[in-house]
Structures are given as structure tokens and as C-alpha cells.
Nucleic acid binder design. Structure first.
Length: 425
RNA sequence: GGAGUAAUACUCAAGUGGCCGAAGAGGCGCCCCUGCUAAGGGUGUAGGUCGGGAAACCGGCGCGAGAGUUCGAAUCUCUCUUACUCCGCCA
């Protein structure tokens, strides 16, 4: 949520900034609502103050056994005068909130305007791998190595799913464990979080109200719950409605969860296999920090995510997203995209973002600074990393002429010393 | 899933309609005493949010959340949430 005071004091500037992400907004309605709110509030508070005073007097009179008829007559005069105003005020505030909740975050100044065509590759790790043999895509590889079972997954669940089998499951798990160990080493606290979240959590993270359609709902639960689309949604909400102390910041957390997403019918042929599914695995990092340390935290998350990729020895690029490609709640995002040789495309395996105070305002995530003032936290998140997309990349980038796949060295200890996945048929 | 109890400030806790934004204790701040690591005395301190104001300050809301009764609600009524206890079921 944006700071309403900022919008009120500079609507044109905010409007212009949002236009960078292709979001057109007209604040004239909001300004009117604020005006209305201000007038109503003044009126209502005056009447309430008078009423409180009179009520207090009644108490005093009664204790002194004095006659209260006059006071009651006076109170009768103002009693219902603002009832209607109170209703209108409530509606007005509701409208203001609803409006604000649908405004996306302001992109950082250094972002280029426009949609994802404006994304810029800011760095590249390693050269694209060269193959002196006809390469296979990850679906072929996974099938011939016997590490993924798509057909049985379709049988027991449906489309957009798969089963990791045998060494496939162990490889996926090795990735997750490797990441977990790295984050622990870097001083991040490991949280295993609920996967079924309440509405408020989605609202704070910025998924709702705009993207309620994109998640899976459990309608039978009352109040209804949704399956988290990323661990970020849970992690960001850990300190909702809390006031932290500055000296306990930054808070650094990470979690492993499956991510459940509807991905409404957007399958392209290039996204077959494990590139896009209803459920995928991801290790996610989150930081709560101060404005002062916000940019450093972003850098840290970036470096951490990249270092994981480097340790895996994969070819990837880092993209700085254009304003229009940055998601609703975020002010800036850098993506790490891994190279998939079969389709000659880079696919996102990590997204590092800074929401600034956007999520904190929605969820009242605050801290008390050294001067004893209350401020909003800055919240940041970054995948570290999305394992379900890494496995295909490892298969494709590390495939050998004989159809086997070399396991990245750092994962070998997690696989009981296995160095290669070998063909089973 | 059933039945019951509870939710008050940083923590514990008192408070069944007005004198309660809230006793008391701990904690924390300051001062004194003592002197060697643990104790004594005094004193101060109550959050948050919205609005007005240059400020001092004034006012609205606020005792888990929401609604209601009332001139007036921490206190009465209803709904919800959460925690605990017992029973049932279950990895």
C-alpha cells in the first residue's frame, strides 16, 4: 500500500511514476474522498467530544445525587445527529482503503519504463555450454534416466504435475538441502511455515485483492484459506501487526515450501515438462530491515542467490526488470534466469525484490527506531532458489554424449557420492 | 468434531455499568544507601492510531476482532478468532 499522505501531497508525481509500469490511475476520486472524510471526521469528533463530556457529567451528578434532567435533555438533542454521518464516514474510509489496496507499488527511479521488453541483462555467468552431440531436452533426459514420472502424476493428480522418482527425488532434495545449509551458514533463520494461509496474509503480501484468482482456495475452510503460491507470502506475514525493535533488525528468514499456483492455462510448448506446473519447490529468503539498510539487503540477497547458481556451475543471466515487469507489490526486481539449451531460452529461477514499505504498510509491520519513533520496515524477498526449474537446467546443461548427466560437484555429498545420473533405458 | 474456561499495557495481573486509559507487581529510567555482584530505600515511567495546532497542548478511537444494548461499556448481549483443559478421532 502506498502512503496516502504522499499521494495527497503529490498526486501528479505518483501518477507519473505508476505510468512507468503501465498503470493508469486517476486520483481525483481519492482526493474527493479524503476531503469528505476530513469534513465528516471533524464533525463527528466534535459531537462525540460533547457527548463524552455530558455523559461524564451525568455520572458525576448521580454520585452527588443532583438532578440530571437537564443533561439528558441536552444529550437528547445531539444524540442521533451524527449517526448518518458515521455511516457515511465508514463507507468513505472503506472506499479509500479499497482504492489504495489496488494501487501497485511505485517502481524505483532507476527502472526503465515499459513492459518486459525493457528488461536489461546486467550480468552473465559462464558461456553458453557447447555440445558436440545432438542435445536432448529435459523431458527426454528425465524420462530416459528414470527420474521423473509424468504419466503416473497425471493419473493420480492431473496436468501440470510430475513425480520425482528415485534419484530424481534425491537430486531435487539434494538441491533443497544444499540451499538450506548455505542459508543457515549465512545466518538466516530456517522457518517451516504453514502452507494454508488466511486472507489477511495474502492481502499483506500484495496478492489480494487483485490476484485472488491466481491461487488455490480451500473454500470449505471457514474462514477460507489458500495454498501459498510462494513461501514469501507466509514469511512476510510472520511479523504482521508487530512493532519490532531496531536492534533486532534485520530479521533474516528462509523457508522451503512447495509453491501452489493456478498458472491459468498459460502452457506453451516450450514450457512442457517441469518448467511450469501447479506445484513446484522453492527455497525462499526474506528480510525485514530499515530504510537505511534496504539497498544493502537487496544486494545481499542478490549475491546470495547468484552465489548458489555459481556453486552449481550453471550458465545464467541476471536481468534487471523494467517497471512494467516488476510485480504488483515490488519497487524493484532482479531475476536470475537459467539457460535451457533445448529451447534456447533463459528461465527465471530466482526473483529478488524490494517492496520498500509497501507490504509493511499493508500488514502494519513496524519497528521502533533509536529515537523511539515508529517506522515501517522495509521488506525484501528473494528465491534461493526455485529448485524445480533448476533440475531441468542441470539435466540439460550437464548432459553428456552418452545420455548421462553430470551432477554438480557441490551436490555430490548430498547424493551419497553419486556423480552421474545414468540411463536406465 | 463435542464440552468447558479464558483473552486487559513490555510481562504477570486487579477490575461486573460512570470517580478506569485502567489498581498492584515485575521490568525499565533516575537518585540515595551499601559495597563487591547480590540486595535495600526513594522516585519516575504506560502503548498505538486518527484529527486539530508552529508548538505547548487539545480532542476522537482504543482492554483479542467485529456488531449490539445504554446518556455512558474493559464490565451486559451476540458473532468470530485464538489459547488452554477434558472427551472423541487421527499422522
Amino acid at each position: 500500500m502506498l502512503d496516502i499522505e504522499m499521494i495527497m501531497s503529490n498526486p501528479e508525481l505518483v501518477k507519473k511514476a505508476l505510468l512507468k509500469r503501465g498503470f493508469e490511475v486517476d486520483f481525483s476520486g481519492l482526493i474527493e474522498l479524503r476531503q469528505k472524510r476530513s469534513e465528516l471526521l471533524k464533525k463527528i469528533e466534535e459531537v462525540r467530544a460533547l457527548r463524552n463530556k455530558l455523559s461524564k457529567s451525568i455520572g458525576e451528578y448521580k454520585r452527588m445525587k443532583k438532578d440530571t434532567t437537564e443533561l439528558f435533555a441536552e444529550i437528547e438533542k445531539i444524540k442521533d445527529s451524527v449517526v448518518r454521518d458515521e455511516e457515511v464516514l465508514k463507507e468513505t474510509e472503506e472506499k479509500i482503503k479499497t482504492f489504495l489496496l489496488k494501487i501497485p507499488n511505485i517502481p524505483d527511479e532507476d527502472l526503465v519504463a515499459g513492459d518486459k521488453e525493457g528488461n536489461v541483462v546486467v550480468s552473465v555467468n559462464k558461456d553458453q555450454p557447447n555440445f558436440d552431440f545432438p542435445i536432448k531436452d529435459h523431458v527426454e533426459l528425465a524420462t530416459s534416466l528414470g527420474i521423473i514420472d509424468y504419466e503416473r502424476a497425471a493419473k493420480i493428480s492431473g496436468k501440470g504435475t510430475w513425480i520425482y522418482t528415485g534419484l530424481g527425488a534425491r537430486l531435487e532434495w539434494a538441491l533443497i538441502n544444499f540451499f538450506i545449509d548455505q542459508h543457515i551458514k549465512d545466518g538466516y533463520e530456517f522457518l517451516l511455515v504453514p502452507h494454508l494461509l488466511n486472507y489477511e496474509s495474502g492481502l499483506t503480501a500484495g496478492q489480494f485483492p487483485k490476484f485472488e484468482e491466481d491461487v488455490f482456495w480451500l473454500e470449505d475452510e471457514q474462514p477460507k484459506k489458500f495454498l501459498l503460491p510462494t513461501a514469501e507470502t507466509a514469511l512476510i506475514n510472520v511479523h504482521r501487526n508487530e512493532i519490532l525493535n531496531e536492534d533486532e533488525l534485520p530479521k533474516k528468514y528462509f523457508s522451503y515450501t512447495p509453491c501452489y499456483r493456478k498458472e491459468a492455462g498459460s502452457y506453451r510448448s516450450e514450457e512442457r515438462g517441469m518448467i511450469r506446473g501447479y506445484q513446484f519447490n522453492k527455497v525462499e529468503m526474506v528480510q525485514f530491515t530499515t530504510e537505511e539498510n534496504s539497498d544493502d539487503a537487496f544486494l545481499e540477497l542478490m549475491i546470495k542467490a547468484e552465489s548458489l547458481m555459481k556453486m552449481l556451475g550453471l550458465h545464467y543471466q541476471v536481468s534487471k526488470l523494467a517497471a512494467g515487469d516488476v510485480s504488483f507489490a515490488m519497487a524493484r526486481t532482479f531475476d536470475i534466469e537459467v539457460w535451457l539449451p533445448s529451447i534456447k531460452i533463459y528461465k527465471e529461477v530466482s526473483s529478488v525484490s524490494n517492496s520498500r514499505t509497501f507490504q509493511a504498510r499493508r500488514g502494519m509491520i513496524r519497528y521502533r527506531n533509536k529515537n523511539n519513533e515508529i517506522e515501517y520496515c522495509h521488506t525484501l524477498n528473494g528465491s534461493g532458489l526455485a529448485t524445480s526449474r533448476l533440475l531441468p537446467a542441470i539435466l540439460e546443461q550437464n548432459q553428456q554424449a552418452d545420455g548421462s548427466v553430470k551432477i554438480p560437484d557441490v551436490l555430490v555429498p548430498y547424493l551419497g557420492g553419486i556423480t552421474h545420473l545414468k540411463k536406465v533405458k
